[in-house]
Every structure is written in C-alpha cells, then in structure tokens.
Design a protein around this nucleic acid. Structure first.
Lengths: 245, 245
DNA sequence: GTCTATAACTTGATAGAC
DNA sequence: GTCTATCAAGTTATAGAC
C-alpha cells in the first residue's frame, strides 16, 4: 500500500535547478489551469461555495485531476493561497525595507507604511482582472484551520516589522491601539475590495464604479489620517441614551 | 395538495394583536431555541459551515423542527437575520434623528455620525456573549442571494440618511469618496470584530484581548479622523518603484 | 407540534482502465 | 497523466406515525 506518493507529481522537495526537465509534464498547463480556475471561483464564490466539480469543469479537465495534482481540495486551496498571497507579503516587506533605508534611521512617514501594506494587495495583479482582493477576503473569512494557520503565520512575519516601524513613527500611541488600527486598515481594505469588489458602489445604479486606483487613494487617505489620530483612551465617554427624557 | 401552509405555523401575516393567543404553542421555546442555537452557530461557523443537523442538535430538538418552523434552512437564516440585524438598523436611525435634532439644523459632528453607525452594532447585545458582530460578518460575506438582497435593502435605508448627514457635515468632500469612506468604516468594523472577534489580537499570546469598549473607542477615533481627512484626489501621486535604481 | 425514517441529491475522494 | 465509473458520507427536505 503506497498510495502516499500517488499525488504530488511535481514534488519539488529538493532544490532542483530551475530549468530542469519538469517531470514528464507534456501538457504544460493542466495543473496551471486548475489553479487559475480555482482562484477565480474561490474569489467569486468562496471556498465552501466552490466544489471540486466546479473547478474541474471551469478548467476543462477531469474530475480526478484536482486529487491527482493536489491530493485534496484543501491542498488545492493551500496552493492557490501560496501562489497569490506570498508575493504580496514579500512585496510588502520589500517596500518597508526600501522606506526604512530612505528614512535613514528616522521614522518612516505614516503614509508610506500605509501604502506599503495596501498597494501590494490592491495593485499587484493589475493586468488581469483583479481576483486577488476577493481571494484575500475569502481566505480571511472562511479558511479551514490549517489554511488559517498558514495565513496567520505569514501575516505575523509581515506585521511584526510593520508594527515596529509604526511604533517608531507614532511613538505616542498605545501599542494595543496601534495593533487595533492595523486591523482596522486590514478590514477596510478587505471588505471594501471584496464586497464592493471594484464592482458596485452600494446601490447607485447610475454611476460607474470608481476606478481601483481611486479606491486605493481614498483608502490610503482614510487610513493615514486614522493612524495619525490622537489616542482614544480619554475620548468623549460616549453620550449614552438618557433613561428618562 | 395543500402542503404550502405546512410550515409557518406562527404565520403572523395579519397584524394580530400582540397579546393574542399564539397558535397552539405550548412549548414556549422550541422555536426560540432553534433561533438561538442558529445564531450562535452561524456566527461561529458561518452559514454554509453550519448544517441543519448542527442547529437541531445544539437546540436539543428534532431534525425536522427547522423545516417545520421555518420551511427551509434559508428561511431560518432569514429569520435570524431579521431578529438581530433589524434592531441595529432601527437604533442607528434613531440615533441619527436624535443627533440631528440636537444639532438643530446645523451639521452634526462627524464623531456622532460615526458613533451612530458603530455603537448599535457593537454594543446592542452587551449582556449576552456578543454573537451579533460575528453574525454581521457572516451575513455580509457568505449570504445567499436572497439574504444578501434583504441586507442590501435594509442597509440602503440606513445609509441614505446617514450619507445625507455626512454630506452636510463634510460639504467639501467628494460624494464618491464619502461613500467609499462609509465602506471603509463598515469593513473595519466587521473585520475587526468578527475576525479578531473580541477574542484574540493577532497572535500576542501573553496579552489579554482588549475590552470591546476599548475596541469601539479605538474604532471611533480611527474612523472619525479618517472621515475628516482631506480629499485624496490630488494627494501624493504615489511614489512608484523606480525601474532602474 | 414532535418524532422516526427515508427519499433525493451533492459532496470529496478513489480504483483501475487507458 | 488523464479518464470513467463508482463509493461512502453527508446534505436538505419530506412523508407519515404518534
């Protein structure tokens, strides 16, 4: 009984030289087509809302193809995730490094940090129709535990250095509040971009949707000023509804 | 063939006086228990992630109970939605009216508008363990078309008057950008509150999670200043990556 | 109103021919 | 590597006894 190695044909466990023969992979694309179909469908209908049958139909392949190439449906999802999310996070870290060099030890302007987090996610797949934001949202909101752990691990690697940078740029801000604000930024980005998905703008049938660049700029502006707001601690203690009048 | 009326036993189609006999409803709670179990599970695992079996098991009732009381699983979801989301939106409108009266024709302070949108969603079920934010998120992100339409319709009724109020308070802001900012607020709220769900704070194992009140205040601060930010239109034209160096 | 039993269907995954 | 055929498990919903 050795079905363990049955799937994972392009098992690049060892650092095979990049130009080496792909293992007898005549059709250069069937695995690729699966990935592309999957990311489209996952973004549009969610993980649980997409069946393996949907994916193989959309990819024009056989039902068994997903299991052959990725073992399980979750395996496919994990690969889709890695392929699309990893480059975003690398770009985020790259931009942070560049910004910090440019600042030469001093604090990095808040807007640059905000852009460093937002732009890679929103502009990295500019040529194609943007499936990435939708994917981000789906993964964030309905991942299985394993996938979620992957996400969290990657996110930690990005957020840790960004948190440090923010802290240097906003030294007066309480660390917990800073952390919360990063979540606000993430939420604003993910929600805006997936839900209203560059598509509609909350029911104004006449107007065309704003261009993604405009959405990005608006988001940057909103978040930058949000980050630079004073601390909330002693803010107006909430005008509660009066019981009597 | 009259199975059409089989479900919907408390069919309150007509404006029955509130204290009228519930139709032979000895057990005061089985329907109620279903609703409570459903909203807990929906909030925790999502709509598609929750099966009718889960709900009935959690409620301690029979598998057929859901179909008897609500017709279909979607019918149950719709009722859960109405029960919990409708009061939020009514409270939002109420707060807006109060704020506008208080302002007496003048512009309402932006912070009051922000609070009017956020507080009802985040504080309305303060006594119980807060299931509401999770529900909001689930409904927003994985609703079936019918439910989504319900949501959108309700949301329109809330957003329309709020948009008008914001416009009076921020007359210099482009209407499209204003609309976007409302989406940012919604996203920040929903994401923060569901994903980090008053529960964990992005992987800092030592610290306790911030209290919901603190989260709310931080969110209010962030969004208020975000709303009051200048227009993004002519903002820094984005330092693109230099091709050469 | 509540239950058991089951129908009708969809899902992910696999075995085995080619 | 790709296919067809099929399985086992899980799903919603319903019929009909109580």
């Amino acid at each position: 009984m050795e079905p363990a190695g049955a799937f994972e044909p392009p098992a690049e466990t060892h650092p095979v030289p990049a130009e080496a023969h792909h293992p007898p992979d005549h059709h250069p694309d069937t695995r690729e087509r699966l990935l592309q179909a999957a990311e489209r469908l996952f973004a549009a209908r969610g993980l649980r809302g997409t069946t393996v049958r949907d994916v193989t139909r959309e990819a024009g392949t056989n039902l068994a193809a997903v299991n052959y190439h990725f073992g399980t449906k979750d395996g496919l999802a994990l690969e889709v995730f890695r392929r699309r999310i990893t480059p975003i996070n690398e770009e985020r870290l790259h931009r942070l490094r560049v910004a910090e060099e440019r600042a030469g030890g001093g604090p990095v302007p808040v807007e640059e940090l905000v852009r460093g987090l937002l732009e890679p996610a929103l502009l990295l797949d500019e040529e194609e129709d943007p499936v990435l934001p939708g994917l981000l949202s789906r993964f964030a909101h309905e991942s299985h535990p394993e996938l979620l752990e992957q996400m969290r691990a990657q996110l930690r690697e990005v957020l840790h250095p960004y948190l440090a940078a923010f802290r240097r740029s906003l030294p007066a801000l309480d660390p917990t509040e800073l952390r919360l604000r990063i979540h606000f930024l993430a939420g604003a980005m993910i929600h805006t971009v997936s839900h209203l998905g560059w598509l509609d703008l909350s029911g104004v049938p006449g107007e065309p949707p704003p261009e993604r660049r405009a959405v990005l700029e608006a988001l940057v502006r909103f978040c930058t000023d949000g980050f630079q707001a004073g601390p909330s601690g002693t803010l107006h203690p909430t005008p509660q509804r009066e019981p009597g009048a």
